[in-house]
Amino acid sequence: MATIQNVTDDTFEEVVLKSKLPVLVDFWAEWCAPCKMIAPVLEQIAEEQEGKLTVVKINADQNPDTVRQYGVMGLPTLNLYKNGEVVKQLVGAKPKRVIEKELEEFL
């Protein structure tokens, strides 16, 4: 069973940018209701795409450097990184089928 790892400003480069697999990063915060709504969806995607995609979370309030570096303005924001570059960005809570459709060309 895939688990969603938490990353920080300090671990972001190693875990996300240097990953051999595409990485879906969930920028979230404790106070963000839509973030809580999509959390179970992201867990399902992590499990279903295990071996093809890594899913991680980064708390936007606790990691302002990474948030600023990638210009994250709203939460939740999902950035898909491939070979260290952002190849797709989704802002706001989306249904699972929409997220999967947006990711499919990169998996």
Rank of each mutant, 00 (worst) to 15 (best):
V67Y: 01
M37L: 11
L75H: 04
C35P: 13
K36W: 06
V15R: 12
I45E: 05
Y70E: 04
P64Q: 00
K101C: 01
Q69A: 15
Q89K: 13
K20A: 09
I58D: 11
V23P: 02
L107M: 01
E85W: 12
D9P: 06
F106Q: 10
E30F: 04
V15P: 04
L42G: 07
E14M: 10
Q49H: 13
L90Q: 14
V86Q: 14
E102Q: 14
G51W: 09
K36R: 15
L42K: 08
V86G: 13
T54F: 11
I58E: 09
M37G: 08
E47R: 03
G71Y: 05
N79R: 04
V56G: 06
T66Q: 02
V98G: 00
L42Y: 09
Q69W: 09
N63E: 11
V91K: 01
P34H: 05
V23I: 10
P95L: 05
C32R: 10
L17P: 06
P40T: 03
E100V: 13
A60D: 06
A2T: 07
Q44E: 13
L90A: 07
K94H: 11
R97N: 13
D65Q: 15
N59D: 15
M1W: 05
V7G: 05
E100N: 02
K36V: 06
V87D: 14
I38A: 02
F106D: 09
D26C: 08
V72W: 08
V41H: 12
M73E: 14
V15I: 15
T77G: 10
V55E: 08
W28C: 08
E102W: 02
Q5P: 03
I58K: 08
A39S: 15
V7A: 03
L107H: 01
D61V: 10
K88P: 03
C35S: 14
Q62P: 12
S19M: 08
E14I: 02
Y81R: 00
K96E: 15
E105L: 02
P34C: 02
V56Q: 09
G84R: 15
M1V: 02
E30A: 10
A39M: 10
Q62T: 11
A93I: 00
V41M: 12
A93L: 01
V72I: 12
L53H: 06
W31I: 06
Y81S: 00
D65L: 15
A2H: 08
D9I: 00
V98T: 07
V91D: 11
K88E: 15
F27G: 06
F12E: 00
P40L: 02
Q49W: 14
Q49V: 06
K57P: 12
Y81L: 12
E43S: 05
K52S: 06
K52M: 00
G51Y: 09
I58G: 10
G71R: 04
V15W: 13
E100Q: 11
E14P: 02
D61M: 09
T66Y: 11
I38M: 13
L21G: 05
F27Y: 15
E105N: 04
V16T: 00
T3C: 12
D65V: 15
N83Q: 15
A93R: 02
